[in-house]
C-alpha cells in the first residue's frame, strides 16, 4: 500500500487559516490502514480545526467526508454536487488523491493533509516499512523475493557491498542489509547458484529516470 504520515497540525492550519468553508476529505484505502487519512483522522482534524477557528473568534464551516478512494473518477464524482459549498479542501489522501482532486475540481484549492512517504507494508501497528520503489521492472524472481532496489541504500544489483556488517547496512544499525537477506533467503531456498549470476546494468528508463510514467492497456480499455 501507499504509506503516508500525518502532517503536523500547525502546517495544516497555516494552509487553511484564511478560508472559512473547508471540506476535510478522507480516503478509505491505504491512508486508512496506515492511520493517517481515514475517517477517524478526518474527524480529529475537523474537530481540531473547528476549535482553532472558534478560538480565533472566526466563524468557519468544517465538514467531513471520507470517500472510498480519491484516485478514481467515480468516487471523486460523489462530491461534485457539494464542492461549490466550500472554498478549500484538505485532502487526507496520498499525493495521488490530492492531485486527482485538484485536477477534477479546478476552482477549489486542494491542500494536502498528509505526507506521502513510500510503498510499504505494515510490520506491526505503528510501524510501516518500505518494500517497493515502483521501478517498473520487477526482479524479485531472481532475488528470493527481497528487493535490492527498495531495501538496499545503494540500490545495487550485485551485492552486498563493503558496508554490510553482521547483516546490517552501514547507514544504520537498524537497517538490514538487503543483500544479506537475499543471500540468506536463496540459501534457504537452496538456490545459491542464482546468487552467482551477475546482473547486467538495470534499465532505469522504466523508473522515474524516464520521466512521468503511465500504464496503458488496450485489452481493458473501453
Amino acid at each position: 500500500m501507499i504509506v503516508a504520515d500525518k502532517k503536523p497540525m500547525e502546517e495544516i492550519i497555516q494552509e487553511v487559516k484564511d478560508h472559512s468553508k473547508i471540506l476535510i476529505l478522507g480516503c478509505n484505502e491505504c491512508v486508512t490502514v496506515c492511520e493517517a487519512g481515514g475517517k477517524k483522522e478526518v474527524g480529529v482534524l475537523a474537530s481540531a480545526l473547528r476549535m482553532y477557528f472558534m478560538n480565533q473568534g472566526k466563524t468557519a464551516t468544517i465538514d467531513e467526508i471520507t470517500l472510498e478512494r480519491q484516485c478514481d473518477h467515480e468516487y471523486l464524482e460523489e462530491v461534485r454536487d457539494r464542492i461549490d459549498l466550500y472554498d478549500a479542501v484538505v485532502s487526507l489522501a496520498c499525493g495521488v488523491g490530492v492531485q486527482f482532486m485538484a485536477e477534477k475540481y479546478q476552482a477549489t484549492p486542494v491542500y494536502p493533509g498528509v505526507n506521502t512517504c513510500f510503498l510499504g507494508a505494515t510490520e506491526k501497528r505503528g510501524l510501516w516499512t518500505e518494500r517497493c520503489q515502483a521501478c517498473g521492472q520487477c526482479i524479485l524472481a531472481f532475488t528470493g523475493g527481497i528487493c535490492p532496489i527498495s531495501r538496499c541504500a545503494k540500490r545495487i544489483m550485485n551485492g552486498p557491498c563493503g558496508g554490510s556488517t553482521k547483516g546490517k547496512c552501514e547507514i544504520s544499525k537498524e537497517i538490514d542489509c538487503a543483500w544479506q537477506l537475499i543471500v540468506d533467503r536463496l540459501k534457504a531456498l537452496n538456490r545459491l547458484e542464482d546468487y552467482e549470476k551477475i546482473f547486467s546494468i538495470k534499465d532505469w528508463s522504466t523508473d522515474r529516470a524516464g520521466g512521468p510514467r503511465k500504464v496503458q492497456r488496450e485489452d481493458v480499455q473501453e
Partner: peptide, 8 residues
Amino acid sequence: AILDTVGV
C-alpha cells in the same frame, strides 16, 4: 498536543 496546537 492537539489542544495545545489549537490554543485551547
